[in-house]
Amino acid sequence: MNSHNQVLPANGSHEHWTPLLETAVREVFELMLGCQLTAAIDGEQPAPDFTAMVGLAGQLCGLLSIRCHRKAAALMASKMLGVEVDKVGPEISDALGEVCNMTAGNFKNKISGLAEGCMLSPPTVVTGSDYTLHSMADSPAIEVRLFFEGMLITISLQINS
C-alpha cells in the first residue's frame, strides 16, 4: 500500500488530491474491514440512501462525505462488528460514520501541514435519499467512486478554500 505526503497547494486547485483520497479510503476498508475496494464500473445501482459527513476546519475547510445504499452500509457494519449482516441494526449509522471519520483523518494525515492544522468534526449520518446538500464550498468537489463488494460508494471532498 502506498503512502503519500504532499504539501498544501498555494492556489485553489486540489484535483491532485484525488489519488490521496482514494488511497485513504482504500486503506480504511483494507485495514478495518478486511476487504479491497475495486474500481467502479458503469451500470445501474440503487440510489444511495445513507450519507455520512465529517467537517474539516482550519487550514483546510470543507466537508468529506461518503454516500452509499443501506445494503452497503449494513455490510460495512457487519464486517466491522464481525457479525452476520442480518444481525446489524442501529450500528449501521455508527459504522458508516466511523468509516467517514477514519477516511477524513487518514486523508489529512497524508498531506503535510494538515495533520496539525486541520480539525475534524464528529461524523453526522443522514438517511434517506430525498434531500439536496448545499455546501458553502467554493471549488469543485473531489469525487472518488469505488465498488465495495459490488456496491457503489461515493466519497466526496468539498473544499472551501
Binding site: N101, N106, N109, A115
Partner: peptide
Amino acid sequence: ITTEGSES
C-alpha cells in the same frame, strides 16, 4: 487510539 495523527 485515534484518527488524530499530528505530532503535537
